[in-house]
């Protein structure tokens, strides 16, 4: 599977990352290298092998439906770069 700069820009968009031209070039080469390396997995026979998402195979961990204290509004506001009138602010969503 080959990857070109167009793919890199597409992935950058998916990742919400603004890349400089230089970065786009550099990452194209880096990703080509890394993908070239990981291509070795193609040779591994995984027929019938169950994929691992969780290493220990444990299941069913729950919490009870009990509401506890939320953060104070001041704490929430203090962390936020822009917080006005009780809410986070972003450029207008159209």
């Amino acid at each position: 599977m080959s990857l070109d700069q167009k793919d890199v820009l597409h992935v950058a968009k998916l990742s919400a990352l603004e890349l400089s031209e230089q970065e786009a070039e550099e990452f194209t080469k880096d990703l080509q290298d890394i993908l070239g390396y990981v291509e070795r997995l193609e040779s591994v026979d995984v027929h019938g092998v169950v994929p691992t998402s969780h290493v220990h195979g444990i299941v069913n961990d729950f919490r009870d439906d009990i509401a506890k204290n939320s953060l104070k509004l001041e704490e929430v506001a203090e962390m936020a770069p822009e917080f006005k009138g009780g809410g986070f602010r972003v450029p207008k969503v159209l």
């Binding site: 729950f62 919490r63 009870d64 929430v76």
Partner: peptide, 24 residues
């Protein structure tokens, strides 16, 4: 009142982890 039902998990704070509510 807006943003008063927020905790580290709800806000997606770094390090916060989801744990599933059994009643759901």
């Amino acid at each position: 009142e807006p943003n008063t039902l927020c905790d580290p998990v709800t806000l997606g704070l770094p390090g916060a982890l989801p744990v599933l509510n059994k009643r759901v």
